[in-house]
Design a protein around this nucleic acid. Sequence first.
DNA 1: GGAATGTAGTTGAATCTTGAACTGTTTTTC
DNA 2: GAAAAACAGTTCAAGATTCAACTACATTCC
Lengths: 151, 151
Amino acid sequence: MTGMDTVEWLSGHEQGVWRSLLRAQSRIESELDRDLQRASGLSLVEYGILVSLSEAEGERMRMRNLADSVIVSKSRLTHQITRLERMGYVRREPCTDDRRGYWAVLTAEGGAALADAARGHVAKVRERVFDRLTPDQVKVLGEVMGALEEP
Amino acid sequence: MTGMDTVEWLSGHEQGVWRSLLRAQSRIESELDRDLQRASGLSLVEYGILVSLSEAEGERMRMRNLADSVIVSKSRLTHQITRLERMGYVRREPCTDDRRGYWAVLTAEGGAALADAARGHVAKVRERVFDRLTPDQVKVLGEVMGALEEP
DNA sequence: GGAATGTAGTTGAATCTTGAACTGTTTTTC
DNA sequence: GAAAAACAGTTCAAGATTCAACTACATTCC
């Protein structure tokens, strides 16, 4: 009977914070995803991929790095890039100095689709997140997320 | 050319915070999910369902309320409950006073599985989240998530 | 009281995700 | 310099998710 509770539990307050976090997370993500999808036909992950590519040297990234950058499994990225390729937003280029590898390269259409999607998406992010917070809260949130994002 | 930028962009700082948030979110979720899966065979959503049920009057909830409580579509909940039913952790009971409805009821096995899973999971949450934050940060995080979780 | 509308939950089919196995290349090690 | 180990990326098949129908019951409104 005892011995079962050798685990340090969460305090009542922590528990409340944790649940708020889970709810906020899941609501924000699903709302933004739905809106983005509706407005531009992109999922959040696809949007993230296009953003990463657009900011990279030569608007291209190796699959492995891209997968890390958007925090997605290799396998999932393969499928995702295949779909983006079908949409005409990305193309694959074999990597000359490492013949195992490929570049995922942003196409002009991809860049345009991203620019298009970004307007509405950014507005939503502002409205859904930042408009609800004071500058101080944003500052602390930044510190907190900085601490939490490390692997 | 102008008119394109009528959208209020995010400030550099806000942008950084937003990206940290996305990364932290996705890392935390995938790590906890993986660990939970490994330790107990439950996904985070399944765990959430069991928690909700365990805290409800009579350890049972109507599908609709349960779906809202775990923030999942009706359809997804149907499938999920079907799987949990196959695992023996939940059972469906027809609702007598509203013949359209069903109760999802936590079984004894479900309660046991939850208790089992909770130990390790809570430890992970503590380790992955709360141990990284000061009490003040936790307090502000709670306020922030409180503001963000509202629909 | 009965047509219209709303709500609870499920179904089906297409799409997406997952994880392990696999191919082909590079790097290491001895 | 060859064998072993590591790495990049894809494939396959099983399982999960989505979204739009759909069934069946409840509620509303005249």
